[in-house]
């Protein structure tokens, strides 16, 4: 009795969204044979990697009840800075690569710190602050790069982006999954993660228990920035360019992945594994519908609708799990 309850609870809370993913995959494989081919699956993995990495950072911010709209622009800025570093001919290639990765992550963290500090110092909602950062970072990226695209990266860098293990597991996807697992570990096992959930649920209670909640909130934005820095590198690995105009609308896909994955926009509830599944659902939908021959616009309509449906389902899930608990 207890066990069936536990299983039902698990299905609803942890696996609920996974079931939808499996269903989608089964449906697409049935209607489009090409969907289940090794090649296509590998494609999907590649396609969702960048969004997954950004969504990992976004999960921290949303768990605290915040939001980061600047991730797309910051990604562009990070990529430009990294691109300029990596194409610097005066540096030996390995050092240039190392510096480029460091610069990208550092720039992401800097933007995140700025977001977090401004929000906390003046008690402004992150929606507004990161909206400002969205414009600032985009402007900075265009300014620094003279609005030009940077390319011709070192060969040894480019080759990583197309490398796959066992022929179908792209390296950048493995990196993304590794980041998800690290994020999961941080949220579930560390004091920091506990505080993220606690603050997301009731910041005042945590403050009155003798903690400095502002530090945690600023740290979450910095983590989000760091993830964006990593995502920028993955982007360059995959497309071998850095451009000041890339990343447009990435914030929405990342937020969608987090929300579809079951994280509450009010904060305090959600999981990193959910976020990964959320990103996968978006990727599978995009890919499957394309294979079905659906137009770009129609796909956009369906993806949008899925986000709304996911959130509606989530309200039922919450009710059901309340009854079971």
């Amino acid at each position: 009795m207890m066990d069936t309850k536990k299983i039902a609870y698990f299905l609803l809370n942890e696996a609920g969204i996974g079931i939808i993913l499996v269903l989608l995959c089964v449906l697409f494989s049935y209607f489009v044979p090409a969907f289940a081919s090794m090649n296509n699956i590998s494609n999907i993995f590649t396609q969702i990697s960048i969004n997954t990495v950004i969504a990992v950072g976004m999960t921290f911010v949303i768990l605290l009840g915040g939001i980061d709209l600047s991730v797309g622009s910051v990604l562009a800025l990070c990529s430009i800075l990294a691109g300029l570093t990596i194409t610097n001919k005066s540096l030996p290639v390995p050092l240039a690569i190392f510096l480029a990765v460091s610069v990208s992550i550092a720039a992401g963290i800097a933007c995140g710190l700025f977001n977090g500090c401004v929000c906390e110092r003046w008690n402004i909602h992150s929606f507004v602050v990161t909206l400002g950062m969205l414009n600032m970072a985009r402007g900075a990226a265009l300014q620094v790069s003279n609005s030009r695209t940077i390319f011709s990266f070192p060969k040894s860098f480019n080759v990583v982006g197309t490398y796959s293990i066992f022929g179908s597991l792209p390296v950048i996807f493995i990196m993304a999954v590794a980041l998800v697992l690290i994020g999961h570990f941080v949220l579930k096992k560390t004091v920091f993660g506990r505080m993220i959930y606690a603050i997301g649920n009731n910041e005042e209670a945590v403050r009155l228990s003798g903690h400095n909640t502002k530090h945690y909130k600023i740290a979450a934005f910095a983590i989000c920035g760091a993830c964006v820095g990593v995502a920028a590198i993955l982007y360059m690995l995959r497309l071998n360019i850095a451009s000041p105009i890339l990343g447009n609308g990435f914030e929405l896909s990342a937020i969608a992945a987090v929300v579809i994955g079951g994280t509450s926009m009010n904060g305090g509830k959600g999981s990193m594994i959910g976020t990964l599944i959320g990103a996968a659902i978006i990727g599978v939908l995009n890919n499957g519908l394309l294979l079905l021959g659906m137009s770009d616009f129609a796909r956009q309509i369906v993806t949008g609708a899925i986000i709304v449906i996911a959130v509606i389902l989530d309200t039922y899930r919450a009710k059901l799990s309340l009854i079971l608990s």
Partner: peptide, 21 residues
């Protein structure tokens, strides 16, 4: 409810909230 407890978290997390270190 609004200042002392985190209602949506289990008792053990509430009890350890201040002394988590």
């Amino acid at each position: 409810k609004s200042q002392g407890l985190i209602l949506e978290m289990p008792l053990y997390a509430n009890i350890s909230l201040s002394a988590i270190d």
